[in-house]
């Protein structure tokens, strides 16, 4: 039964071109375009070379770290709202809830969002690598050989951190989509929360190398940063508490996804 719901949801999502493109394709394309524009700007307008050799490994990891920005998150929230809000928007729940359990239907949506997010992260990584290659060509800059021993864990951590962070944001959007039955509310409110988090973190300034556990628990954004290895530019020092951070991110995900499912199972679909 769960498998049926998963297959159906993947089938549907893939054909919702607007959601796929704006939600999950734009981030990768955006990373590539921004990289290209930056390189061209430095070469043609500022006329100063970007310091350092091209390193595709750090380009890739750097691209994945973009998930921490609320601007990047906007796209994923559009994708999440399209997935979780589509059946309210088009009043199509009544076609579906008699065909499978509500638990399965909602789990299928989370799985679809998770898979699409993972693919979008791959897209962002590819965008980072391509923009690095473009810089190598445009600036005729030599490329560093990739040190796989250092690159592999950094990549895995950045990927896991980005994915978990976006899953938490997506599950907040899911909860709001079910609660309000509208996509726009889900996107806007989640975005406001993301900006609020960024502002409070800026004011509270938790120690980025040894963050206290309560700060990690309060800010999923900080947890993601720690899991990634620390904010960019703390001088090669790896932040402590990655295990804790992972647990807290999973906890947030479980709380929001659990609330979403709990609410949906009890929801009256009077119009939908």
């Amino acid at each position: 039964m769960l498998l049926d719901a998963l297959k159906a949801e993947q089938f549907r999502l893939w054909r919702d071109r607007g959601a796929v493109i704006f939600g999950f394709a734009v981030p990768g394309v955006g990373v590539l375009l921004l990289g290209l524009i930056a390189t061209l700007f430095m070469k043609l307008v500022a006329k100063v070379p970007i310091p350092g050799h091209v390193n595709l490994g750090s380009d890739l990891v750097g691209a994945l770290s973009g998930t921490g920005s609320p601007i990047t998150q906007i796209f994923f929230l559009i994708g999440a709202a399209a997935i979780f809000g589509t059946d309210y928007r088009w009043e199509t729940w009544r076609l579906q809830t008699p065909r499978n359990s509500r638990l399965n239907l909602m789990l299928a949506k989370f799985a679809a969002y998770g898979a699409a997010t993972a693919l979008a992260l791959v897209g962002m990584g590819i965008g980072g690598v391509l923009s690095g290659l473009a810089r190598a060509v445009i600036e005729a800059e030599p490329m560093d050989a990739i040190n796989f021993a250092a690159f592999a864990p950094a990549f895995l951590r950045a990927f896991a951190a980005g994915w978990l962070e976006l899953m938490v944001a997506g599950s907040v959007a899911a909860l709001l989509a079910v609660l309000t039955r509208t996509n726009v509310a889900a996107i806007i409110v989640t975005l406001l929360l993301a900006f609020t988090q960024a502002i409070i973190m800026g004011i509270a300034r938790p120690d980025p190398v040894n963050p206290p556990w309560d700060a990690l628990l309060t800010f999923p954004g900080l947890s993601a940063q720690v899991l990634r290895g620390g904010p960019v530019g703390i001088g090669g020092v790896t932040a402590h508490g990655a295990e804790q951070a992972t647990v807290f991110l999973l906890l947030w995900l479980a709380v929001f996804a659990g609330l979403t499912i709990f609410l949906f199972q009890r929801q009256e679909l009077t119009r939908e």
Binding site: D4, A5, K7, A8, F11, R12, Q96, R99, N100, L105
Partner: peptide
């Protein structure tokens, strides 16, 4: 119909 019948198994 593909989507709905898939959902129904």
């Amino acid at each position: 119909l593909v989507m709905l019948s898939t959902q129904s198994g």
